[in-house]
Write a protein that binds this DNA or RNA. Structure first.
Length: 112
DNA sequence: CACGTGACATACC
DNA sequence: GGGTATGCCACGT
């Protein structure tokens, strides 16, 4: 399994995440079949296209992965707000906006 | 091949 | 909530 195949799988999984929802790096890696490879997800997003919904990926604790006040952090907060996700003090309420397990079935179907 | 680094995660305190 | 420590994996030096 080449590294490129893994990142394409990650981006594919990310493309399934609906607007208004967020997922953590670890959860995304897990759904893509790559448990424990959250850091690889970060590398993928860095080299990904602008069209990819990178802003829906946050840390497991709900915080944005960038330093507060940074350009990318502000952009991500803006994009999430546009989609209806409330970002309070650099943090997102995963309990409400997090990707629900029920959507996992959608992924399973798409994998066929 | 050892080491440091990074858009991470988990366990503790 | 914040801070520290450890584990993790891919990559460049």
């Amino acid at each position: 399994m080449t590294n490129k195949a893994l990142e394409s799988k990650i981006l594919k999984t990310l493309s399934i995440v609906p607007s208004g929802c967020v997922v953590s790096y670890g959860q995304l890696a897990d759904l893509a079949g790559l448990p424990g490879r959250a850091r690889l997800v970060g590398k993928c997003l860095k080299s990904s296209q602008e069209t990819t919904p990178w802003h829906r990926v946050i840390r497991s604790d709900g915080k944005i992965a960038f330093p507060p006040g940074s350009e990318l952090a502000e952009e991500q907060r803006t994009l999430l707000t546009i989609e209806g996700v409330v970002v309070k003090k650099h943090r997102v309420n995963i309990g409400i906006f997090g990707w629900k397990p029920s959507l996992y079935t959608l992924l399973a179907e798409l994998e066929q």
